[in-house]
Amino acid sequence: MEQPIITIEDLTFAYEREEGGEQIPALSHVTLSVPAGSFVAVIGQNGSGKSTLAKCLNALLLPGGGAVYVKGRSTAEDAAVWEIRKTVGMVFQNPDNQLVSSIVEDDVAFGPENLGVEPAQIRRRVDEALKSVDMYEHRKKGPHLLSGGQKQRVAIAGVLAMESECIVLDEPTAMLDPSGRKEVMEIIHRLHRQGKTIILITHFMEEAAQADRVVIMEKGAVIFDGTPKEVFTAATELESQRLDMPFAVEMAGRLRKRGLDIPRDVITDQGLVEHLCALK
């Protein structure tokens, strides 16, 4: 079997508060493996450890206990860091604060420039990356002229230009308006279809439900790991209240309580409507 692109083994991490060196636990014995080409969504409330997990994947944070392997190499290994960061690219929550340059195409070039790629090649990569996120026509613009969704797409292009095989997106839509969110999710799906491994950190269940696999985190531990349908089938009443449920799931639950037979694997509006039609 092909080696998974990322393997997380018994990962533990705690933040140190500066004053007094007090430890704040963030991750506790997390074990996970990500096959190449898959689309994994990691969901949890604020404080569940999901962002911390993301930063452990590209060696921004080093494990306190356990290990993270990217294509077989440990993130704790000094010599492997740059290779790992090239393989695992990251897009952050704030669209503004990750753009380095005052011109879109120069910002996308930042990554390959750091890798010492030859100039003509950089040009080619930048153009291709911008085209794959539908931002090529904005390549000469300044970031302050772009919308949030457009800025995030430029950030994604910046990662694509580094030819990363895996893209980790840490709550990329949290600060966007609904149209920006849609733009970014479309691009993410497109990239997944093109073969990239996608790890999407989010707190929107509606986004997580679009992935192949959903990992639910709570207080630093993984409390669920399965397909979206499995999540909603297995989730008990109590858990549903804690998690953010897609509207269709909430409605299905309400209707079930009123006696209608709606199977637990109905998770979209479309699915619910189809099922109701079938009932009649």
């Binding site: 990251m90 195409e105 750091n114």
Partner: peptide
């Protein structure tokens, strides 16, 4: 910004090329 730059393999001027 520093986190983003590091994630994109920034490590100072050594070995950097220019588009």
């Amino acid at each position: 910004l520093a986190m983003a730059m590091e994630s994109r393999c920034y490590r100072g001027g050594q070995g950097r090329t220019r588009m």
